[in-house]
Amino acid sequence: MNNANVFMKATNIHKSYSHATGELEVLRGVSLEIKEGEALAILGSSGAGKSTLLQIMGTLDRPTSGELTCEGRDLLAMNDDEISQFRNAEMGFVFQFHHLLSEFNAVENVMIPCRVAGESPKLAREKALHLLEFMGLAERAHHFPNQLSGGELQRVAIARSLVRQPKILFADEPTGNLDSQTSGKIQELFFRLKEEMKLALVIVTHDLTFATRFPKVYRMKDGSWFS
């Protein structure tokens, strides 16, 4: 493969957890390359190891062994502060559950990554409002999470993940908690975002229909790729 446009590379990733009866091996030497602006899906049943891989590639967890680089930088060599700053600047995350803060309204929730990065409240608010308008939520910007529907909550979470203009968006079962009609709309939104924002997009899902819409699909079982 031409490495010139490889954005992120995971090589021989292993992950094990210790428990009372020994070691539980969750990932068994998984390797994956993600090109700039590429969209791919990781498909597998519950317990296959796909979410663990996403968390490692997103620097939310560290592997037991292996290598992880992004734009040629060794992510595993960074300390906690360095990796947190890198993650907040370069990566966005969407999960099955929206994880919005109930005491903040929609625009305040979207502003959080900017405020963590030290941006001014004015600039953070402008960015957040722009994204909420893009998501079709301009009129819901000052509503609190308990005033929003499931689909609206997930769109706010997506806006929050994009507010710092990351180069890659990781999504873990992003439609798993939605009804079929809302799920379809959120799926369409991901593809629109990928094209308009030139993102690399990595989706973890057990939904075969969703996964097969991607140009590249990796199937995982028992911590390894399979055909």
Rank of each mutant, 00 (worst) to 15 (best):
R62N: 12
G136S: 08
S161I: 03
M91Q: 07
N109R: 10
H130M: 06
P166D: 12
R62D: 12
V110F: 15
G66S: 14
E90C: 07
G150W: 10
T182M: 12
L123W: 07
L148W: 15
N177F: 09
G176Y: 11
T182C: 07
F144I: 11
G72E: 09
S65M: 12
S180M: 02
L60P: 02
T64S: 15
A89G: 00
S120W: 09
E82V: 02
L131V: 07
L148D: 13
Q154L: 09
P145Q: 07
K122V: 09
N88T: 00
M91Y: 14
L100H: 14
L75E: 09
C114H: 01
D80V: 00
G136C: 06
F134A: 03
L132G: 01
H130W: 13
L101Q: 08
D61P: 02
N177Y: 02
F97P: 00
R164T: 08
G72Q: 03
H142M: 15
E119P: 01
C70Y: 12
G176H: 11
G184E: 08
E67T: 04
T175L: 09
N88Y: 04
L131R: 11
H143M: 11
K127T: 00
S161N: 02
Q154N: 06
G66D: 12
P166W: 14
T59E: 05
L131I: 07
N88P: 01
R115G: 01
T182N: 07
I168R: 10
G184N: 06
V116T: 01
A171S: 13
E126T: 03
L123A: 06
L153A: 03
V163H: 05
S65W: 14
F134L: 12
N146A: 09
R155Y: 10
L178Y: 14
L178S: 04
G184V: 03
L137G: 11
D61L: 08
M78K: 04
V163D: 08
L129V: 06
G92V: 10
R115Q: 08
Q165M: 02
L60V: 01
L178C: 07
A106W: 14
Q154W: 15
F170S: 07
S183P: 03
N146L: 13
E133A: 07
V94D: 13
A77P: 06
K122W: 11
L68H: 14
S180G: 00
L68E: 10
T64A: 15
G150L: 08
S120K: 12
L76W: 15
L129I: 04
A141D: 10
